[in-house]
């Protein structure tokens, strides 16, 4: 075998190796994909009153000042399938950005305190957590995109009661397109909505392009 031939073979081998690595990386970088999107959107549909009930029994209530309702905030979330056991904080809105105030500590997650609590018989209980952080590494929801239909999770409320949920959908949306009104709805079937970041990462802006949304219903 000539030297020249050897060089050619080596180049071929290196080329194959490079392409193999590239292919592997590309395969691993596929988005998680959506499952159950239709079911998730059905849950958000609220019953519309028919025109027929325009009349009669008009509801009458005492015009008392509104009292604080007995909302049950989730305090702990356990998702065995992806090894999550996280403390849940009640959070609101970042005044400056008008965005969801995800707890800064990446091992903690945040419940949207303006929406329904675990006691609610309608609407979406929203919990969001970091996928990761540049300073702190992997977050509580790093593996959220691995969840699939049928996976179970347990949310424990401040009342000490553990409530089981079953995943029905996992969706990925560009942050510019995500229908947030649907996930922050206070009507429709009772459901638990978990949100984190995902998709391609823009290293310059230090931002993910997408949101990963997992929808679960009471099991």
């Amino acid at each position: 075998m000539t030297v020249r031939n050897c060089g050619a073979l080596a180049a071929l081998a290196a080329g194959v190796a490079a392409l193999t690595v590239a292919t592997l990386v590309a395969c691993n970088s596929q988005p998680a994909g959506n499952v159950g999107a239709e079911e998730a959107s059905t849950l958000a549909a609220s019953a519309t009153p028919s025109a027929a009930d325009a009349d009669p029994s008009v509801p009458v209530a005492a015009g008392e000042l509104p009292a604080g309702a007995g909302i049950v905030p989730p305090v702990r979330l356990v998702i065995p399938g992806i090894d999550v056991t996280a403390t849940v904080n009640a959070v609101g809105i970042n005044e400056r950005t008008n965005e969801f105030e995800v707890p800064p500590s990446v091992d903690q997650i945040g419940w949207y305190r303006y929406g329904p609590g675990l006691e609610a018989d309608a609407g979406s209980v929203v919990i969001a957590g970091h996928v990761d952080s540049a300073k702190q590494g992997k977050g509580a929801f790093f593996r959220l995109r691995e969840l699939d239909q049928g996976d179970t999770l347990t949310a424990t409320g401040s009342d000490g009661k553990a409530r089981e949920y079953r995943v029905v959908a996992r969706e990925e949306y560009a942050k510019t397109k995500i229908p947030l009104e649907r996930y922050f709805a206070r009507d429709g079937k009772p459901r638990l909505t978990l949100i984190t970041c995902g998709g391609p990462f823009d290293a310059k802006a230090r931002k993910y392009r997408d949101n990963i949304v997992v929808t679960a219903v009471p099991a």
Binding site: V25, A26, S29, Q30, P31, A32, I93, T97, N98, E99, F100, V102, Y112, Y114, A128, G129, H130, V131, D132, S133, A134, Q136, G137, K138, G139, F141, F142, R145, K175, L180, E181, Y183, F184, R186, D187, I195, T196, C197, G198, G199, P200, F201, A203, R206, K207, Y208, R209, N211
Partner: peptide, 22 residues
Amino acid sequence: TGLHSAPGGVPSGDGGQAGTGV
């Protein structure tokens, strides 16, 4: 009731370890 708006977004990661796409 029912006059609420959704937050402007849910920013929840700036590490890039979970980035998909090449």
